[in-house]
Design a protein around this nucleic acid. Sequence first.
DNA 1: AAGAAAAAAAAA
Length: 906
Amino acid sequence: MTGAAGRTLYSQFWAKTADKECRGYKPVGHHLLDVAAVAGRYLAKNPARLERERRLSGLSGPEHVRLCAALAGLHDLGKISRPFQSQAPAFWPAALSGSCPSQDRRLSHWEATAVLLQDREIERLLKASLPTFVIDNQIVAAVAGHHGVAPDGNLLGATGEITLLRPVIGEDCIGIARSLVAELLPLLAPNALEDGDTCHAEAFSFSLNGLITLADWVGSDVDAFPFEEPEMSLEAYHPLALERADRALSAKGLVPMKHPLSVRLSDLSPRAGGSPRPMQRLADGLHFDATPQMVVIEDGTGSGKTEAALLIAARMMAAGLGEGVYVALPTMATANAMHGRLENAIRGLFDESGERMASLVLAHGRSRLARELDALSARHDGGQGREESVASRFNAWIGDSRKTAFFADAGAGTIDQAFLSILPKKHLTLRQYALAGRILVIDEAHACDAYMGEELNTLVRQQARLGGSVIILSATLGRRQRRELITAFASGRGVRQRRMQALFAAPLSEAYPLLTRYAGGEIEEHASDTAPGLARSVVIRRLGDRKEALAEALAAAGRGAAVAMVCNAVDSAIAMHRALIDAGHPPHRLTLFHARFAMGDRMATEEKVLRLFGPDSGSGDRIGQILVATQVVEQSLDLDFDLMISDLAPVDLLIQRAGRLWRHRREGRPLAEPVMGVISPDPADATEIDWLGEVLGPAAYTYRLPGVVWRSARDLFQNGRLETPGDLRPLIEAAYRLEPDDLPQALAAAHDASLGNDYAAVTIARNNTIDPGRGYGDVRRVSLDEEIGTRLGEETVTVRLARRSGGLLVPAVRRDGAGVGLDWALSELSVRKRWLLAGAAILDGGGLPAPRDPAARDAARGLWPEWERTIALYEVDSDGSLATAQDMGLFYDGVGGLRRQSVSGA
DNA sequence: AAGAAAAAAAAA
Ligand SMILES: [Fe+3]
Ligand SMILES: [Fe+3]
């Protein structure tokens, strides 16, 4: 059943229909040629990527293109099967005996592909045209598993299951599939391909599946690949498919931009270009060849390391190490800000003299909201400039889904989006494949906890495996972390055992700021000078309790200073705020800022805080102002205080907080020198585990790192000063030592327990992430929901707040010109579940405190999109109390946030 | 008794 007879038969099998009833269909052969053409042309138009990727198959570039096209051209072979064809009775092939059975769902078409690819005769055809390594479970998994999930293990290899499934597909279908393969392969791989260098089938399987998925998504666009007469021969259709693939790839922004061969700092940031910082000069002096590599930059905020990283990324792209850039950050807020900075740098990163502008994307769970808010504020300002420029760089296809977002030329987003590529999630390979074509920049890497740190190791290793490059930006990293990151990258490049040990023969440098590079040879370390203005000395003063802290803050504010009081716990901050009011500090000189605000109120508070303490604040704004805050001020906001008072915390966080002291250049500060007061008992008196509880209250228990916290107190108070940069490495290395021998007896056991917790988190991360030594076929138990998360932590609940208007519940926070969907989002906050449930006796179906008026609540929720309807919703009465069925003493307003009426915060 | 942070529709 080959040749002319076979051709007329397989053209009866549909792959796509306009609708299931009538009109035409696209036969399997045409769709396979479409997708093969997209895969092949994508690589052919991307020579730098091809050069990296071909190392995985061990073939030459042109051979690798043909191999990938041929394999992509088999992905939907399983549509030649009875179960699949039964889904459109109107098109049931005449060639098949019997009439169309009613919907047969025993086998999906992609699983049928896995079975067919292991048919003896089809394997023989494959071997005749393609290298022998394609007869491999990983390759079968990569080709068949193109709907986001790898086929089950019992579909791979000679298993009984496969024998059972052949009759389900139908022996007649199997025969026709054979004849289709026999026709396709000579078109897609005209000259038989021989084995080349070593094929790394495990790594290749991820890359191949990513490419096939991409090609399938592109090739399934009916507008770009319209239906032809099903009888049109494959030979006649093939050139049409190639032409359409070229056009579709261009239209979807998937043909890489050109990269300027010489990029200067001033092209990326005119401001930085004028007077380059030391780290930027260091970056400028590096040379790049086409070896996948990793650069780690450790330097402080304000050192210009972001521009240094973009400069390196530009040079890496020019050297063929990537076609675009993705900057991953730990929060949505910093991602939004980075998106803005990329917008300014993008003209320097890409050569836009060609036919299109470079695309730019913002990738996180709330990016649509961020876009809506941007558009709204642009309308308010009357200035359409930014909105338009962002819109012109927005590519509809790429921007349609977070899964395709990484295909943009430049992107900013959360690190979590990148983690989704190494967690067992649907379509993980699509994200991997896109990232492998970007220079992956990880910003603020120090913000990773143990769980995220292990995810990061896997991410780095997988990126290296697929031939991608990485830039990591961080404040001081521990030596262990640096070593782990380099190890991850090197092992992704195939370095093992003895070669790995040799890499670390010499101890890693103690210098700071530091640029470390690994490019396959030895580890290079370049010490940098500290940027002017960043070297500083802060006086550390221990404050014995909150009362002393309060007096200190009031005294400084009385002298006109701008004061920050940073608490480790929200309830402590609320209590501190209360105490300041009770002590007579004027409310208009007092702000409370934490994360338990509805988003709209939080944004307003953030704006106020920036106005009072930001780079543009004048002495009139600042005079006598006190900000009481939690960790929300630790990161990303560019704030400057004359005096900082903080709860005792791990030293790396105290360093971040101290960085908010005397940050901008200002004349005539009301205080003589930068001082950080740290609220803590004397560490010499730490004779029991709970040595902090009495002084700090709830804030004593936030960080479950008793050894780290105690050492932070010991060293800071002993020194009495914090010298930047000299003190940073020694302080961090000392605080995070593993051995307990320097700790007070009372803390040693708790310290060991906290190490155990970290180790447990790392173990969970190892279990959750993909096995970085294995292949796509080994990725199982794909998790569809949040049961495997990008972060580990206590359970939180999302709550929306409403007020009553004419009997209906409407968003509590509203904004002019915003739609109701946006208003609801602005009325949303997230809170620890345990906190919310404390003292709750009457619960609703969702296990949360029952609302007073469930009918009104359900009516309001009924208007939300379906996937939002499980979000909790409470009405806020005019006195601010939350309308729960049982009086829980919960209270909300825009000044204090969500709290319990009787808050005890020590 | 204890922080902030992200993710979550649905596909080719
Ligand atoms: Fe398919
Ligand atoms: Fe398909």
